[in-house]
Amino acid sequence: MDIKLIQAQIETDLANAISPQLLEELRVKYLGRKGLIAELTASIPTLAAQERGAFGREVNGLKSKLLTLFAEKEKNLTGSIQGEINNNIDIGMPGIAPTLGSVHPITQIIDEICGIFTRMGFCVVEGPEVETENNNFTGLNIPLEHPSRDAFDTFYLKDYPKLLLRSHTSPVQVRAMKAHKPPLAIVVPGRVYRPDAVDASHLFMFHQIEGFLVDENIRFSDLKGTLSLFAKSVFGRDIKMRFRPHFFPFTEPSAEVDISCIICKGKGCSVCGRKGWLEILGAGMIHPNVFKHVGYDPEKYTGFAFGMGIERIAMLKYGINDIRLFFENDLRFLNQF
């Protein structure tokens, strides 16, 4: 009997088996207890002694080949059965998935902004929220008894004279500069505190991001270029930006930075107070007095610094009209981000 011929026949039969039922019939026919393979095996003792070995090996080879072929065929056929079942699923039914939370919108904005600056080469550093009067004020060229301090109402601690809750992230400038030599390129996100009466646009706690770059030959034009890149990254390429002269004790020259209103595109609306511009941050060249305070040579080094309120950016970007929403932590608010 030609085993090869048998195998070819079976292969043809298998190819024609288009349903599991047909496949099962073939399995019985060939591999079943009374099937062809069993028949062939049973015939071995009837053969001449010298033929038995070779024939036995051929039958075994065929058997294992068939087992593989049947298994493969079965896999193919059941695969298509699964396909049929899937077609019966009502895909309008809800999807099944584990719950996914989200990070707070303030964290998202901080991450986005820190991401932009780290791509430019800045490092992210944080500082303590309880600060010294020195780091928060004097080291930043804010004299203790000067009207420039009026902008920084401050929480003081009861049992710790000269300690306060930082009213801005700028003290980290002083800390970083005292700890490291230039060049420095740092952004500082964090919580800050001011005893402001609470309303839709004021809170006693909010977040800022501070950034500063110190090296030889850092110029105001670098500040403009850097912040322009930043504003376009956050608010879109079409945004216009303007630098307005302003006063901060720790920078000179100083500027307030406006972007064209993202709501009305600069035409004037209620969000921008009909001005067409939105103030988003304060910036300037680090004052030589700040360098002197930390022991940097103001003749050798120059630098720029900028700072912005995160809640304000988030409110503009997401169209949020009440700052208190950020810390009420209503899940119906948080889930939207």
């Binding site: 390129a185 996100p189 403009k224 500027a255």
Partner: peptide, 26 residues
Amino acid sequence: GRIYGYPEIPQTLPAIKPNLNICGQR
């Protein structure tokens, strides 16, 4: 700078030399 006009000052990008040793735990 103020009277010359901030808008007249060009925009440039600084060459930043990152110092990875000072990155915090954010």
